[in-house]
Amino acid sequence: MVGANPVEAHPVVGARLLQRVLHGAKLVVADPRAVGLALHADVHLRPRPGTNVALFHGFAHVVLAEGLADEEFLRERAVGLPELTELLADYPPDRVADITGVPAADLVAAARLYGRARRPAILYGLGVTEHLHGTDGVRSLTNLAILRGAVGTDRGYGVNPLRGQNNVQGASDMGALPDFLPGYGRVSDPAARSRAEAVYLELDPVDFLDVHPDDAARYDVRDGAQVTVESRHGRACLIARVGEQTALGQVFCSFHFPASGVNRLTSDHADTVTSCPEYKVTAVRVASSS
Rank of each mutant, 00 (worst) to 15 (best):
V159P: 01
E66Q: 03
S231Y: 08
V284L: 00
V199S: 02
A240M: 00
L18H: 13
E71P: 08
A225F: 07
A270V: 10
A283Y: 12
R264D: 02
H131M: 14
G67C: 04
F56D: 00
A150V: 09
R119K: 07
A270M: 03
T153Y: 01
M1C: 08
V53N: 02
T135G: 04
D210Y: 13
A109R: 13
L22E: 14
G127Q: 10
A89F: 10
R222V: 09
F255T: 04
G261N: 01
L162W: 01
E76K: 14
Q226I: 12
Y124A: 02
L64F: 07
R20L: 15
A217Q: 05
V262T: 01
A65T: 12
G175C: 02
A225R: 06
A192D: 02
R155I: 08
V28P: 00
A283H: 13
R119L: 03
S194T: 11
E83F: 14
V227R: 02
V43A: 00
L248K: 12
F180T: 09
R148N: 09
E66V: 04
L88G: 05
A236K: 08
Y279E: 03
E202R: 15
D42L: 05
A145Y: 07
P190M: 03
T51G: 00
S260H: 07
N166V: 14
E76M: 11
V62N: 06
L238F: 04
A109H: 07
L132G: 13
R33G: 00
V102K: 06
L84F: 10
E76W: 13
R186H: 11
P103F: 03
R264L: 04
H44G: 01
L87E: 15
Q245Y: 09
A30Q: 06
A15S: 11
R155K: 13
F257Y: 07
P258C: 02
V12S: 06
Y219S: 10
V79L: 12
V43G: 01
G224W: 05
V12L: 13
L84Q: 08
V35C: 03
A97K: 07
C237E: 15
V273Y: 08
T153N: 03
V206C: 11
L113S: 00
A198Q: 10
